[in-house]
């Protein structure tokens, strides 16, 4: 049991990575898997949580924050990422700013096969847009989050961190 608890990505780890990388705002739509993370973010006085109504608003709101000299992150789920396609194109890929998008990988399994079509299309969607991405499953992968931040900064492009297990360890 102790071993099992160690093999998740703790929300605290993600927030620690945000702080380490100077994040000022998280533009987000909470999803069913991330309520504890949301509560932690709201309690973090150095972080401004910006709830939006639909995922397409996230890259554009983040662009405005970037223009204003802030360091935003988008926190959404893969379903909403697909809805946000035109916004990702015009307000992130074409904008020339670094942007980390943390995307809950709904339907992901280590076995590969999944009945959830959103999981089947998630990585092909990112490939189609030419967006680099990192898979993060547990705390042991947390260095990949800083790596993703660095890639976004150096390329001035959006980079995605796919959260493979959405903080609870149920999907494996």
């Amino acid at each position: 049991m102790v071993q099992q608890q160690a093999e998740i990505l703790r929300p605290e780890t993600l927030i620690s990575e945000f702080k380490k990388n100077g994040v000022t705002h998280v533009v987000t739509i909470p999803d069913s898997e991330t309520n504890y993370l949301y509560e932690l973010m709201v309690k973090s006085d150095w972080l401004d949580v910006v709830p939006v109504s639909r995922e397409g608003e996230a890259p554009s709101t983040a662009l405005g924050l970037n223009v204003a000299g802030q360091t935003p992150v988008c926190l959404i789920q893969n379903t909403g990422m697909m809805e946000a396609g035109d916004s990702i194109r015009g307000m992130a890929l074409d904008a020339g700013f670094p942007l980390l998008m943390v995307v809950g990988y709904r339907g992901w399994t280590r076995r590969g096969a999944t009945p959830d079509t959103v999981a089947r299309y998630t990585e092909p969607f990112l490939h189609a847009l030419g967006i680099e991405y990192f898979l993060v499953e547990t705390d042991n992968d947390s260095a990949r989050i800083s790596e993703a931040f660095e890639l976004a900064r150096s390329t001035k492009r959006p980079v995605v961190v796919l959260i493979g297990d959405e903080y609870h360890g149920f999907n494996r």
Partner: peptide
């Protein structure tokens, strides 16, 4: 003056981001 638009209907959200940031 800023030009922010490029995606359908998204200028309002970008302007919102600028307002929050400044």
């Amino acid at each position: 003056d800023l030009r922010l638009g490029s995606s359908m209907g998204q200028t309002v959200s970008a302007a919102f981001g600028v307002a929050l940031g400044l």
